[in-house]
Amino acid sequence: MAMHYKDFLRIDHMPHMWCPGCGIGIIVKAMLRAIQTVEWPINDIAVISGIGCTSRAPGYLDMNTLHTTHGRALTFATGIKLMRPDKHVVVISGDGDAAAIGGNHLVHSCRRNIDITLIIVNNNIYGMTGGQCSPTTPLGAKAATSPWGNADPPFDISSLCKGAGATYVARGHVGSGVQLERLIRGGLNHKGFAVIEVLSNCHTQFGRRNKLSDPIELINNIVAKTVNVRQAAKMSREELAGKYPVGLLHQDEEREEYYEAYKKVIQLAEAALKR
């Protein structure tokens, strides 16, 4: 199927505001290819974001788009999805947005298993606000607020989401747009809460402070830390230290989706009314 990105983009709002070499473009393109393959009409898609570099993405998408408050995108998305369960809701968020200020909404969305697809662009840093450390900044890494090296242990976002009850968890990276498209497509097709964590590069804010200011160099550095999930299964704990398994990490098609469960509430409530 020929891919025409222009069919999905608000071209009149280009050029985008991201730095040259930023991974977000790779991720948005993978997302659009995935959307094309699942053949969702653009009128039926809402894309919601919070605050940060990643959260500017919806502005470039010719869909129902909402740029909300910091960390809260999932809450808005939940309200939209509950009133229009037959439509498609995608949230795109950064690591600080999703896992720090939005952490509570993240774990509770996983718990509910509401049919929303969440793409988390994890570039280990707060980019837009000036390079402060995030909940995924590695220990010892330099950031605007960790000039002596980061003392805060990082979250493993994918494990966190799996533990909190997400029924589709995948991790991709900007070094492979093909794999990423496949993982996002799996999330879009999944009935339930789907999280796709994408390891991405912020050479401007993270790289520059950590001797990785060239985007290619930083992307290569990220790719070198990844290991395919099937290969990871055969590796020891020691061998996996500092590595990020990528691929489909977890999928559960059995657990009931949130609105499906709520439909039963509606049936009981209506039955009580008739009595």
Binding site: I48, N64, L66, T68, T69, R72, L74, T75, F76, A77, T78, G79, I80, K81, L82, M83, H105
Partner: peptide
């Protein structure tokens, strides 16, 4: 947040 989303 959910309220605003639903209103939209």
């Amino acid at each position: 947040g959910a309220l605003i989303g639903a209103s939209l």
